Amino acid sequence: MRPFLLSAVLAFIADQASKYYVIHLMNLPLVNTIPVLPPLLTFRYGENRGINFGLGDGLGPWFLIAVAVIICVAVTIWLIRRPQPLLIRISAGLLVGGALGNVLDRVLYGYVLDFLNMSCCGINNPFVFNVADIAIFAGAIGIAFLAGDDTKKKPAKGENDA
């Protein structure tokens, strides 16, 4: 459980620290846009009241908080009941830490603070995201690709020998 907890705490802290620095110390809501590595990376202020890309706007922050907490609890219970390899525990921690970072935003502000915008190659991306979103995405991809189906029967010794 230690890698799970450590990756969750690190994802949560990285998310909240980056939001605090960019949103509050750099005063992004006032200036709205800060070119960092244009056009690849720009800080642009955003308030996400939905899920990803603003989908689910109107569901209300408390519903989205409840869904995120339920997912975090379910992932944690899954790890307790079925011990997983290291990379899956880290992936699960990233997912939970990122989700809880966005939960804290919804509790404090009623929406999720977003500030990262990436565009490239003549494509102007209108969407913004945050470090928690990166952690959630990386964690979900890690779980999806690394978690095996442990329900399959393993062949007995010599069963596959010809």
Rank of each mutant, 00 (worst) to 15 (best):
V75M: 08
I71S: 08
I88Y: 06
L59P: 12
G139S: 05
W78V: 00
R106H: 06
C121K: 10
T76E: 00
M118G: 03
A156F: 03
W62S: 14
D133G: 02
F4V: 06
G97V: 04
D161M: 11
V112K: 08
I23Q: 01
N48M: 05
V73A: 14
I88R: 14
I80W: 08
Y45V: 06
L108C: 14
V67I: 05
P155M: 05
R89A: 01
A140I: 02
P155W: 02
Y109F: 12
W62R: 15
D149N: 11
V131T: 10
I141A: 15
G158L: 08
G54W: 01
C120M: 14
V31D: 09
G148C: 07
N124K: 13
L59G: 13
A147T: 15
D149G: 01
R89L: 03
V69L: 14
P61K: 12
L6M: 06
T151R: 15
L108G: 10
C120E: 10
Y21Q: 00
P29A: 11
M118P: 12
I123S: 04
K19N: 12
R89H: 06
D149S: 01
Y20H: 15
A11Q: 11
A156N: 13
D57N: 10
L79R: 12
G142M: 10
I134Y: 03
H24R: 10
A132L: 03
S91H: 05
Q84N: 13
L28W: 04
D150Y: 07
L59Q: 13
N102C: 02
L113T: 06
G98Y: 11
D161I: 14
I34V: 10
F43V: 07
G139W: 01
I90C: 14
